[in-house]
Design a protein around this nucleic acid. Structure first.
Lengths: 146, 146
DNA sequence: CTTTATAATTAACCCCGCTTAACTAATAAA
DNA sequence: TTTATTAGTTAAGCGGGGTTAATTATAAAG
């Protein structure tokens, strides 16, 4: 179990570094875009889950349906999401990203990422080649969780 | 340059995964703690830069000094940071984390981290052992950036 | 058909974060 | 010493994001 423990410890440290960077960058870009963190979180959630209802979104963000509904008003107004009726159950509003909304997410993920290039530049070619499998496997496995 | 490119690509993918996770987790924990994202960002900033003045904080967060000053009122009130005079230049207020503030950051980084254990569990012992050097080197190099 | 449950919205309200503008205090420059 | 600059706070006001409670509309159950 020694290896497993030190692996988890190393993973935690690496995750902590990337989380700090990520949060800073997302907060920056979110502010630059004139959105609130809840709004940006909504866009990310919708991209990941395909489409959702208002309650699903509220539950995900940990806010009431009322709050979610009001926030959606502004996102719709800005043309970032679409709020349409579910044809199966007309009580449900089907929330989907617009093309503009998808672009916003893309920019948010790729803005302020120069540090990744810097990190890459600080490694030797041998290290880079050796680390690629690790990164790919971790990413792939992480995608499958929950 | 092929390896370098695919390395950066793999790095980007990993960053994207952790960004999505951390955004949700940090927002959750921040809400649970009764703090705003700006307040949490302030704590993280102060931990990273040691100590800062009000203007420095405002500049970092992209808000006015007035806004920073008001937000600090609440953080001081909650016992998370200390606002003391700089003995060299008494116009400057020296902002530092309290022990409670440091604990808040620690909790924020480690709350909702079960997915890392899950991720670890989804790997074979051979993979874990093989990945440890990569994680350690990446962490160490990333710490030295900027 | 009537009743009940579910999904979402609306209204009234509060708090917070942010802005601008005016102000105080301390340092630097003339 | 007088003036200008810098750091920070205060005050007034706006708008957003959150809440609860009441309301509408649809679907499901009796």
């Amino acid at each position: 179990m020694k290896n497993a423990d030190s692996f988890v410890a190393a993973l935690h440290e690496w995750a902590e570094i990337t989380m700090r960077r990520s949060m800073r960058n997302v907060m920056r870009h979110t502010k630059e875009s004139g959105l609130s963190m809840s709004q940006m979180g909504t866009l990310f959630y919708l991209q990941r889950c395909g489409h959702s209802g208002v309650s699903g979104l509220g539950g995900h963000l940990g806010i009431t349906n009322a709050a979610a509904s009001q926030m959606l008003d502004r996102l719709v107004e800005q043309g970032l999401i679409l709020r349409s009726e579910d044809p199966q159950d007309r009580r449900i509003k089907r929330l989907t990203l617009t093309e503009q909304g998808r672009q916003m997410i893309y920019q948010s993920l790729h803005a302020h990422q120069a540090w990744l290039e810097e990190l890459s530049a600080s490694l030797t070619p041998q290290e880079k080649e050796a680390f690629i499998p690790a990164l790919r496997t971790l990413t792939e496995k992480a995608k499958q969780i929950k």
